[in-house]
Amino acid sequence: MRALFVRELRLASRVGGGALTGLLFYLAVVTVIPFGVGPDLKLLARIGPAVLWIGALLAGLLGLERLFQQDREDGSLALLLTGHHPLALVVMVKCLAHWVATGLPLIVAAPVFGLFMNMSAEGIGAVVLTLLAGTPAITFIGAVGAAVTVTLARGGLLIAILILPLIIPVLIFGVTAAYGAVEDPAPFLPPFLILCAITLFFAALGPLAAAFAIGQSAE
């Protein structure tokens, strides 16, 4: 399993810089927002957490297509299918590796983008923390979309359509918790804990459903 994890990480960091593309996309999204809403620093600070979250969400969706496609093309998916590890576990490890390779860089970059949005140090810290807790959920539930569309040549957009409505809870609780840390009357802990719960739930549901989908389509 650790070997698989390392292999996945190496692949993800090698293949055309998938992580870098996601990061650049994130940067582009965050940069475009002020042009849309105007350079009012107060307003930017207010919508900052939401912008950072939406950007991370979109960038996360962008990379999902690659989760299984590569493996299918070079045949290693079939190899994993016949291996003696349970498929759900394999998918879980792949998701974790994918998240470390593409999700973590986004989170590391988020503080810099937070400065662009004129956010306070507290706010940035809260956004980073919620992203850390929430973005794995995107990968886990996205794995289902990636598994279902793995046979399609261009499944990327379809994954986004299928996954976006399912991801709404993560966005809601992520942003609410981030605001909760900055604005006074709003609570931080309850939404944050619910966010963690959702992530854990998706961590259980996503790999199982994705493994099932892959097993079925391979028959």
Binding site: I141, V144, G145, V148, T149, T151, L162, P165, L166, I168, P169, I172, F173, T176, P191, I194, I198, F201, L205, A209, F212, A213, Q216, S217, E219
Partner: peptide, 29 residues
């Protein structure tokens, strides 16, 4: 058709499981 059938079924069920969560989170929000 066979793959489409199973893929559709899986996504439908995952959506079904998620609908209560979505409803709950939208209520909260």
């Amino acid at each position: 058709p066979a793959i489409a059938a199973r893929s559709l079924a899986i996504v439908t069920l995952v959506g079904f499981v998620n609908i209560p969560i979505i409803k709950f989170s939208v209520d909260w929000w």
